[in-house]
Amino acid sequence: MIKLKLLTISLCVKDASLTDTYVKLLYISKVNFVVSSFKNIFNASKTLIAYLNSVFKDAGNVSLFTIRFFKEAVKPPFEIKEFVKQCYYIGYKSLTLVGITGFIMGLVLTIQSRPTMAKFGAESWLPGMVGLSIIKEIAPVITALICAGKIASGIGAELGSMKVTEQIDAMEVSAINPFKYLVVTRIVATTLMVPLLVFFADGIGLLGGFMGINIHSDFSLYHYFSKVFDSLEFIDVLPAVIKTFFFGFFIGLIGCYKGFTAVNGTESVGKAANTGVVVASLTIFIIDMLAVQLTDLLF
């Protein structure tokens, strides 16, 4: 805009001194432009550095939290009663949700895959395909995501509100180790319960698949399951089972970390629950990707 104005002036008035002024002003505006660009780049990099700094700081804190978990987990006394209580809440109380999801997963997968399989005349492979998909990938990932939503947010909100209302401090001043009582029990419980929930989802998902197949054809349960198990090998099941332990561990770890490190203020409770779910879900996908790559390399 300034450039245009100056150009108009210099064209209208053909005065040497004015043209000279125009050149000077143009130079100044160019310099200003370069300086402001540098300023913007500097500010942007400052923001980026601050963001990266917080990411690395968070990563460092999570690592310290994980190390502390392993240290405290092997040190007696063990909070068995609280651990059993957590297994009940995390495992048993999630059965309905995981069951319904697993059933729908199996049913929908079968119904949607049937037309494509039928096109290639491979309808008889449907049970095997459904079994492989559910056991290797769909049940572990979907169950873990459901657990991330239900468990990680629950733990994050629970511990966050305990932190904000000084309940964790109250434990500490009564010479009770809150990390051992609240964090270790929950992480161990999620590590053990998520694989069991996945196992449950596998079974219910396969039943859903059986129902889906029987909408259009007449398959006996025995025939269906024998087809499913024929298509499965031990090597298919093993990596899927192993990764569920990691899913469970990280769901518990992230939920506990977010809740336990919540800063004072009610706002942080919601934030702990929210970020707990987001980070846990993202972590599940990353672990899944790594597990698939590793399985591909090893087997």
């Binding site: 509100s161 305990m162 209302t165 000084e166 309940q167 401090d169 109250a170």
Partner: peptide, 9 residues
């Protein structure tokens, strides 16, 4: 004794 009693909910 904490300001908000800090009872375990």
């Amino acid at each position: 004794l904490f300001q908000n009693s800090a009872l375990y909910d």
